[in-house]
Amino acid sequence: MSRVLELDAVSGGYGDTEILHGINMHVEAGEIVVVIGPNGAGKSTAMKAVFGLLNLTAGSVRLDGVDITNTPPSDVVKQGVCYVPQTNNIFANLSVEENLEMGAFVRNDDYRPQLEKIYQMFPPLREKRQQAAGDLSGGQRQMVAMGKALMLEPKILLLDEPTAGLSPKYRGEIFSTVRTINAAGVPILMVEQNAKQALGIADRGYVLVDGSNSVMGTGQDLLNNPNVGELFLGGGRA
């Protein structure tokens, strides 16, 4: 298995505040990797580190073996990393189709076959393609955000808490969407609060505490790990 993405002893933060203290993480081809941890552990920050949104003071980020440490976001996108932020991840005033077209902004080739694939993957988006994306339900908005990211046929998809603020019904919808995307061959690195459900679909997971690695293992291992259970899954009842 080849490593699509690798974070090697990454440290960094915003301004002078260091949030990540030497994090190690990797995603292999075809994997879903979930990052969990308490609030303020640096989960989302780790993701931003990959995307060039953070000032890295040490360590390196590699994409397919190529060093992309401290590359600005616009170039990271061009190299095939797509990032879906937790909030504010769609253009609310643009139609669904325009959102998807914007996802393909850096492409100069014909993106219509990919648009067709995304409509096949998310039939509700085809139905509502002329509607303003901001008028869609929370679950469908996440579909737009992910579909928009997939327009580039990325090497890896980064999802920052895709189920945050969604009702349980939509949460299930999102997790099955993530699976569908992954089944199409896109590796996924995902930060999640709903640890139990997320680990259920994950190949592997990382637990971050205070900006450092705490535990790592397969989704099942982490679900069965009593310490992890105690910390994040509700008093070890997992």
Binding site: V77, N88, N89, F91, L94, M102, G103
Partner: peptide, 21 residues
């Protein structure tokens, strides 16, 4: 494409950057 990108950036300059616009 440019007109749509203008509307997109008017919606959210931050997201426009993340999208690679």
């Amino acid at each position: 494409k440019m007109g749509k990108a203008m509307r997109a950036m008017s919606d959210s300059p931050e997201l426009a950057k993340l999208t690679g616009i």
